Amino acid sequence: MAIRYWLGVVQQDHVLRGVAGGFAQVNHGARAPLAQMGPADGFVYYSPRVSYPDGEPLKQFTAVGRIADDEVFQVTQGPAMRGPAGDFLPWRRRVDWDHDAVATPIRPLLDALDFTRDRAGWGYQLRRGVIELTRHDFELIRRQMRPSPGETRKGRPPARITMAR
């Protein structure tokens, strides 16, 4: 089966939890988007905000990795996440995250990415929560998130993604 590439849209605070736990979760725990993914597929998180619902705007790619295996699994979030129908039981995929990745703003890449180039309303498609990327887009984002040692980028110093423990 051919390798595919995915972009999940999640606030940064949730991304950091997923990176720390070695998993990806999208669309409020939906199973269907994760079931489309296969082992070794590329996966990138884009975070429009730092936190939900009214966190500071971020607009950065915040994590990159590869789907680790075939399993889509369900977890319980415990009593703190109980809703009217019982426990919140989100679906997840294991991801081998690149822990050396650097959060990278999307704005400098808008003219180079297939999913944003020549699209004034490029952000609208991200409302789906998950989109498939071209290999070109995945590799470009991955390279931007992995600067060479000592490299600085125009307008900002490199910064490692830090995970709350």
Rank of each mutant, 00 (worst) to 15 (best):
H99P: 14
M1L: 12
R92V: 10
D137G: 01
A85F: 12
P90Q: 06
D54Y: 06
Q77K: 08
T134K: 00
A112C: 07
R4M: 15
L133R: 08
M37A: 03
T152V: 05
I141N: 04
M81A: 11
D70S: 11
R17V: 15
L113Q: 04
M37F: 01
G150T: 01
M1P: 09
R143I: 14
N27H: 13
E71A: 05
Y46V: 00
P48G: 08
L34M: 09
E132G: 06
A112M: 06
D137T: 01
Q125K: 05
V95M: 03
A63Q: 10
K59I: 01
Q12P: 05
F23Q: 05
W6D: 01
R128N: 12
T62M: 15
L58K: 08
K59G: 05
N27G: 12
Y124H: 13
D13F: 02
I131K: 11
G83A: 09
G65D: 04
P149Y: 02
G29Q: 06
A30Y: 15
G29M: 11
E56V: 08
D87R: 02
G22N: 01
K59C: 04
D100R: 10
L133S: 08
V50P: 07
L113P: 02
Q125H: 04
R142L: 07
N27A: 10
G150E: 05
W122H: 15
V50Q: 12
G65S: 04
G65W: 05
R31Y: 14
V95I: 06
A164L: 14
V72K: 00
D118M: 03
L16V: 06
L16S: 14
R66Q: 09
D70P: 07
D54N: 07
G65A: 03
D98T: 13
R146N: 04
R156V: 00
P108S: 01
I106G: 01
Q25T: 14
V26S: 10
D13G: 02
A101D: 15
T116F: 07
P79S: 07
V64G: 06
L126M: 12
Q11G: 15
M37Y: 01
D114Q: 02
G129W: 08
R17N: 14
T134I: 01
R107S: 08
Q12A: 09
D54F: 09
T62C: 11
L34Y: 07
V130K: 04
M145F: 03
S51N: 05
L110R: 11
G123H: 11
D98Y: 14
I106L: 07
Q77P: 03
L34K: 10
F23S: 02
I3W: 14
V50G: 10
I106D: 02
R128V: 14
L16W: 14
R165V: 08
H99C: 13
Q11D: 13
H136L: 00
R119M: 10
D118W: 01
A30E: 12
P57E: 09
